[in-house]
Design a protein around this nucleic acid. Structure first.
Length: 479
RNA sequence: GGCGCCGUACCCAAGUGGUUAAGGGAGCAGUCUGCAAAACUGCGAUGCAUCGGUUCGAAUCCGAUCGGCGCCUCCA
């Protein structure tokens, strides 16, 4: 039984989709005016993992993730660079796919853009105006918060409390400071679309309501995003969507915690963010490996907890993954063993998958799920000492592949062993140089010239290269 | 000022009322190895920020205190 922490109810609810066997989910994507940072990656990864697990659990998932491509920040960026908004959004959508691709994060089922849903947006605003829940003032349209009596139910706030904050700049044209823009009349030079209220563009919140309802229906199962979107973004989405339809909007609200640097939120305004690009550029490992390390790092924290990013944390993730790939290598080694341990393995195989699924069923507890995989790894290593048949080894490999695929881990054929690092411009020895050193050392070893052999080992170690003599007489290296 | 979250070993991190508090990383000792690496074995919190309370029983519930963070403005 899958339990999901629902921001709306404030507790873990049993997950039951509206239509049996089908899940419809919407996640707020990025505003495309800049490169993505690790926080965006976390959010994307969290919801991708949720989708993967739901599919693993047998649901047919329709996953919608939007791009916000009309926005003040985009306009500002375009003006700064003296290019069109389209140029900016096209550039950063491309960058988004590139960055997420490196992390192994795939596309959603539907990836709508606000600019392609103007008709839906306008229809929705018209419905709200007709119902008297929205009003227009000189080309702008505002949602009237007091017309939605349960406003604040997601963020657990009362309108009075919000006003007490007094950080809201009061716009004289609003009837109530809490009211928010559905449509913004265009100022000269701004991108604009025709509407019943004159040329303009949608407010931030309305696009998500329009696009989610267009692609998923008026009521759907899951709506997600970062914690910071709870208020005001998602609160406003609920108000305007429920206000327009009179029906429930999303049933389960899921929010991920932040990536932090030294206990502080990673954000653009604080300037303490790492873009995904930077992390890959600075990494001492090849791209695909860095991608998996990042995934592992992110997944070993629960999605609702804050997590601190650091070089040390990344290194630890690397070491942990090394352990798995070392096992996969052992599993591939030829064997004639066929011991009675195969029965013990059967028990371990039977136990691991349900244990993994129990962890994931508990609000997508990926750290606990990974711990199950670690436990299985350790068990298999012990059984390997005693001798596992080739067939048994294959079964182990398949289970790691299967459960790993839910988390997007363990899908690489080659880990760090003998890899060519030229693709990330690693300084130091080239693959060729290492190879010749290794050959030289093996010649020395065959002549029992261990002084020479150890000297070469030491020399390479100084370059960060670790040699490992395999049982079959070959030598591999890793960094 | 309002709302909310967090504080578990050297580090990271599960666990949120009931047998000996998961797991990873690092460390130390040993087995194996020409030496290493990997793997294996053993060692590590009588205690879960602090102090009270509820309970037969609490890291887990309640209260207070200390420390840190987030949202209330664009933000994953």
């Amino acid at each position: 039984m899958l339990k999901v922490f629902n921001t709306l109810t404030g507790r873990k609810d049993t997950f039951e989709p509206l239509v049996s066997g089908q899940v419809r989910m919407y996640v707020c994507g990025v505003t495309v005016y800049d490169d993505c940072h690790l926080g965006h990656a976390r959010s994307a990864l969290v919801f991708e993992t949720i989708r993967r697990y739901l599919e693993h659990a047998g649901f047919a998932v329709t996953f919608v993730k939007n791009f916000t491509d009309v926005d003040d920040k985009i306009i500002k960026r375009a003006n700064e660079q003296n290019v069109s908004c389209d140029t900016i959004t096209a550039k950063y959508i491309r960058a988004y796919y590139e960055d997420m691709g490196k992390l192994g994060i795939g596309h959603a089922s539907v990836e709508p853009k606000a600019t392609e849903h103007m008709a839906d947006i306008i229809t929705l605003i018209e419905a709200l105006v007709q119902k008297g829940m929205a009003y227009d003032v000189a080309g702008d349209v505002y949602f009237q918060v007091e017309k939605y009596p349960v406003y604040g139910r997601l963020s657990k706030r009362k309108a009075e409390d919000l006003l007490a904050g007094a950080r809201v700049e009061v716009d004289e044209r609003k009837r109530n400071p809490m009211d928010f823009a559905l449509w913004k009349g265009a100022k000269p030079g701004e991108p604009a679309w025709p509407s019943p209220w004159g040329p303009g563009r949608p407010g931030w919140h309305i696009e998500c309501s329009a696009m989610s309802m267009r692609h998923l229906g008026e009521t759907f199962d899951i709506h997600g995003g970062g914690m910071d979107l709870i208020f005001p973004h998602h609160e406003n989405e609920i108000a305007q969507s429920c206000g327009a339809t009179g029906k429930e909007f999303a049933r389960y609200w899921i929010h991920n915690g932040f990536v932090q640097i030294n206990q502080e939120k990673m954000s653009k305004s604080l300037g303490n963010f790492f873009t995904i690009k930077e992390i890959f550029e600075k990494s001492e490992w090849p791209g695909e490996i860095t991608g998996e390390i990042l995934r592992y790092f992110l997944l070993t924290n629960h999605y609702r907890s804050p997590l601190d990013f650091s070089d040390q944390a990344l290194r630890e993730a690397k070491y942990a993954l090394d352990g798995f790939y070392d096992l996969f290598n052992r599993l591939k080694e030829p064997t004639t063993a066929d011991g009675p341990v195969n029965e013990k393995l059967a028990t371990a195989l039977e136990r691991t998958r349900p244990a993994f699924e129990r962890a994931m069923d508990d609000d997508f507890n990926t750290p606990a799920a990974v711990a199950e995989l670690q436990g299985f790894r350790s068990e298999v290593n012990k059984l390997l000492e005693a001798g596992l048949s080739a067939n048994a080894r294959q079964q182990v490999r398949e289970l790691f592949r299967l459960l790993g695929s839910v988390l997007g881990l363990f899908q690489l054929e080659k880990w760090q062993f003998n890899v060519d690092l030229s693709d990330i411009g690693v300084k130091g020895l080239t693959e060729e140089q290492i190879k010749s050193k290794v050959e030289e050392r093996n010649e020395a070893r065959s002549k029992k010239d261990f002084a020479r052999s150890d000297a070469i080992r030491k020399e390479l170690a100084a370059q960060g290269i670790l040699l490992e003599d395999r049982p079959d007489g070959t030598t591999r290296w890793k960094r």
